[in-house]
Design a binder for these strands. Structure first.
Lengths: 247, 247
DNA sequence: CGCACACTTGAACCCCCTCAACCCAAGTGG
DNA sequence: CCACTTGGGTTGAGGGGGTTCAAGTGTGCG
């Protein structure tokens, strides 16, 4: 409800939504120069999504692209009996909807209050056609996600539970956007979401974190934050090096 | 050593390698019109890869792009202790090397005799700049791979061994390029490669196939081919529907 | 205060892995 | 021609990492 910069949102200036967007520097939008921002702003619609709301549903017609400007969403797929695989978490600056098919290949749900830009697909396609630099950035983004997806396949197919959790903590640590990797790692997602992301159960995630804590590798000031105590050890564990038999 | 079509490779006609390429219609190359093929052919180098040869090594400088024109390659990542995850199999028409970073994010090995086109990255980038249609096709390709990768994450994270093998068989069945889905499915890869693709062990793959065979869901005329006998059941199993308690 | 929800912890189980033996087809060389 | 080797595949027995089931412990919020 509280807008930090209400005065600067002059309705007459159409480029404002994009020009003043804090996510721009973290996003594909930065491929468009200031003087061309109006084209982008014209097809963008700002939206607030409540925590828990699913704004992309797998299998439904893919009508829009999205760009997260605040908050975190989880991307996931479901099996008919309810088994869930979280394919990734998307934060500020993340571009969503890159699917060629005419239906979404995954669902997306806000795990905390989210603000995003919505672009209708045909309109954004037109913009893309005029700004090859933006299309190039999209290709770049897609490649990065592909690399991340391959890394995740390695995790899901071949890593042990402890290696998975260590990998997750290290990755979350690097995902803190503005500053560099900090020892203090926020976990906006629940244990259940972490479990569905790592291909484990809630209990295994909880037990593994407890184990790390007992071994003084991490500390848990609260349920939604972790402090890295032994970064080198976590890095080794994440990389899949044979763990020292320190029970 | 043996060239099948030595006579048609007239050195004076530079477009020949591409114009006569059987893989063109299955590949991103089809985005380039006939009269522009010379530009592409000029930067392409044909290569034969022997079975078992690794022509992309994870972590080495990414100097080239590749396009498979014949045979099958496996794409994989390794952990330091040798654990392997196959992230995919690439056949005729498949484009390789889509990584933004300056080093390859995965390795690639020919699992049967392979013929491919090699493009140096800077040269192909120049061609891309002149043919936005080709870049668009690349983005499309990347999106499709992303969707496949997400599907594979669901498999690796949440499916049972039988569901994984069923999914693999059904997918292989659809992967037969020229004709539509046939009941006769070739398996160019070994059990070990299937296992590393599905996040299982050789033994589990073998046992599961034996089980399918005993249940008359498939037949195995040889080690490298499978015949689908009960497609509907396999589809159900692959989709993750609760299996009938038929032992 | 008390309900709901997320998380933790314990005990038993099970699916898949590990280890091992064996089969089989294709070379290979004497 | 046959003994031997080699590599991929199958099958069996046993064990373990993670799941399942269940109970208990916070903890935020009306």
């Amino acid at each position: 409800m509280h807008r930090p910069l209400p005065i600067r949102l002059a309705p007459a200036l159409a480029t404002e939504p994009c020009a003043s967007c804090g996510a721009r520097e973290h996003s594909v939008c930065s491929a468009i120069e200031d003087h061309d921002l109006a084209r982008l702003a014209a097809v963008a619609v700002m939206r607030d999504i409540r925590k828990g709301d699913t704004f992309i549903e797998e299998g439904t017609p893919a009508t829009d692209f999205f760009n997260i400007t605040r908050g975190t969403v989880k991307l996931f797929k479901l099996l008919p009996d309810g088994r869930q695989q979280v394919t990734g978490f998307a934060g500020m600056g993340h571009f969503l909807g890159l699917a060629v098919s005419d239906t979404y290949a995954f669902s997306a749900e806000a795990i905390e209050p989210v603000q995003l830009c919505r672009f209708s697909r045909p309109k954004l396609r037109a913009v893309l056609h005029d700004f090859p630099a933006l299309e190039e950035r999209l290709l770049e983004t897609a490649c990065n996600e592909l690399v991340a997806a391959q890394e995740q396949m390695l995790l899901l197919g071949r890593k042990t539970a402890r290696e998975r959790v260590a990998t997750f903590l290290v990755a979350q640590c690097h995902a803190v956007l503005p500053c560099g990797p900090a020892e203090h790692v926020p976990l906006p997602m629940t244990r259940s979401e972490i479990a569905d992301y790592l291909g484990l159960t809630i209990e295994t995630v909880s037990r593994t974190l407890s184990r790390f804590k007992a071994d003084k590798r991490i500390a848990t000031p609260s349920n939604s934050e972790v402090v890295i105590l032994d970064r080198a050890w976590l890095d080794d564990m994440a990389a899949g090096h044979a763990e020292t038999p320190c029970t």
